[in-house]
Write a protein that binds this DNA or RNA. Structure first.
Lengths: 185, 185
DNA sequence: GTCTATACGGTGATAGAC
DNA sequence: GTCTATCACCGTATAGAC
């Protein structure tokens, strides 16, 4: 939340769209629904975002930039590699799994065939950022080379996303820790 | 494929629906589309499956039963635990990832909030079957107890599903092996 | 910026004829 | 089993007034 409670319509639309995407993916929101939640008409939403693709790109980019800016800087932070990794695992649980949600990336990935190209590129870039950050953490203290670090990053990111799938499908939150516990140190 | 090439309409509908769900999830197919692919009208599809939920349940149940029947019996098969596990990892790659698809379970899991109750239960049961099978394999040769085996099963299943997400989002098939290679022995 | 009005097509589902 | 016809929506998107 920003200091001032008041939000302009554009941000409000993005907030609601973000929520809807997280809960149901690309097909789970409509301009009409978003408009109704704010108390305006769908035509007004189109004024701010001409197409659904435009809106989705904006939402995803904002989310990604915000995500990236909240990641501790690997070089300057005084945290150990293990602290950084555990923090990443915990963050995924607190922000996503505990809210009975899946990551916005997972949600959009299963809709990949229906996404406009720009959204697909934005999405791929988001994964790249996560993998690069994790990779740089893995290289931090160990003598790991870049290739090895990227493999570890893939392994970890896959585990987290897959764990959230198990939780969502079974309704059993404990499966998250079952699935990713081996990553903690 | 069955011996005889001819299929009744009902099976044909299920085949096409299965394909559509795998490619786009619960919202990616309509009775009209399915009907058009067969050369009948949507009302005729409703004759075989009254609602979309009915059709999806049928498809998922058939898929699950077929999947279960193709799993090697842990007790009677002469394969080692490692052979069984590697076979599971390879099967996921060949049948799903190499076809640029995601598992039908992953696709439906991200649609969970929009699914009729019966579909959701069928889906949860599918995961249970996979986890139980993997668990029983883990108990096969090691001295692992049931709780430990279930944890390993969760870990492995999460890795496979998560790996397929990475592949789908980045378009890079090699990420599958990067993410799950650690499971092989 | 937001509105009204509207175009145009897709959607799940049903009634009743053949 | 399959059809025609139809219902009551919901979807994205646009033109033009205020």
């Amino acid at each position: 939340m920003s200091k001032t409670e008041k939000k302009d319509t554009k941000s409000l639309i993005m907030d609601l769209a973000e929520n809807a995407i997280i809960e149901g993916g690309f097909n789970a929101f409509s301009f009409r629904e978003l408009a109704a939640q704010i108390g305006i008409k769908s035509a007004s939403v189109h004024y701010h975002f001409p197409t659904k693709g435009d809106l989705t790109v904006s939402v995803l980019r904002r989310y990604k930039d915000n995500f990236a800016s909240e990641l501790p800087c690997v070089e300057t932070s005084h945290a150990s590699a293990n602290q950084l990794l555990n923090g990443f695992i915990d963050g995924f649980k607190t922000k996503i799994v505990d809210n009975h949600n899946m990551s916005i990336c997972t949600m959009l990935t299963t809709d990949v065939r229906q996404l406009p190209d720009e959204v697909r590129e934005e999405l791929a870039d988001f994964y790249r950022i996560k993998l690069n950050w994790l990779g740089s953490v893995f290289m931090l203290e160990t003598g790991m080379d870049e290739k090895q670090a990227q493999i570890k990053a893939c392994q970890m990111l896959a585990s987290l996303h897959g764990a959230s799938i198990l939780v969502q499908a079974t309704g059993d939150v404990e499966k998250y820790e079952d699935a990713v516990g081996y990553l903690r140190q």
